[in-house]
């Protein structure tokens, strides 16, 4: 009988992989986006900051910040889902990833944002749902909310070009 791995080994591997993936995007760090993980489920968190304001009179989050937050959540969420198996099977070398040798990220083809209500000057959260993840294309929906999960303030729909699988020529 194979004994299950100790929980701390599993956690360290998964949290390490997520930190490298999320930390590899300078723009996500600039906005202050971080990711909470429960098993394979990710929630993106955007802590409020003065520089994220678009309308100082209201005040409200900048529409571009909301768009960027949704897009980052979609890209990292899709990457995480597609790389999860590779992480778990140990096919991605943690040492290489820590050194910055990360697998290529999916690229946005098009992106639609539905602004449902003003983003308030407080923390925001987002989750991505992968509706389709094919060999070349993926379709991802993203939902962002603040105080109330049932009242999203923005929805995004993103089409992405998948990175070439190892050994395949680039698009």
């Amino acid at each position: 009988m194979i004994r299950p791995e100790p929980v701390q080994v599993v956690k360290a591997r998964r949290d390490g992989a997520l930190a490298w993936l999320a930390g590899s995007v300078p723009y996500a760090a600039f906005l202050g986006i971080r990711f909470d993980r429960r098993g394979d489920e990710l929630t993106a968190v955007l802590p409020f900051d003065e520089k994220l304001i678009g309308n100082p009179a209201l005040p409200a989050l900048h529409g571009g910040v909301t768009a960027a937050f949704l897009e980052v959540t979609a890209i990292i969420g899709l990457s995480w889902a597609t790389l999860w198996e590779a992480f778990e099977a140990g096919r991605l070398d943690p040492a290489k990833m820590a050194a910055g040798d990360l697998p290529p990220l999916p690229r946005t083809i098009d992106f639609t944002v539905d602004y449902l209500r003003a983003g308030l000057p407080r923390d925001a959260y987002a989750r991505a749902r992968i509706n389709r993840s094919g060999r070349r294309f993926a379709s991802v929906q993203v939902e962002a909310w603040q105080d109330n999960r049932e009242r999203p303030f923005a929805l995004g729909s993103v089409h992405l070009l998948m990175p070439p699988a190892p050994g395949e020529p680039a698009e």
Binding site: H62, G64, A68, E71, V72, T108
Partner: peptide
């Protein structure tokens, strides 16, 4: 600071979106 992919140095789509929205 606005780069999306450090391997290529290409700007993140989100930064371009924010500019286009503004």
């Amino acid at each position: 600071r606005f780069v999306g992919d450090p391997a290529t140095g290409v700007l993140h789509g989100g930064a371009v979106s924010a500019l286009m929205d503004t």
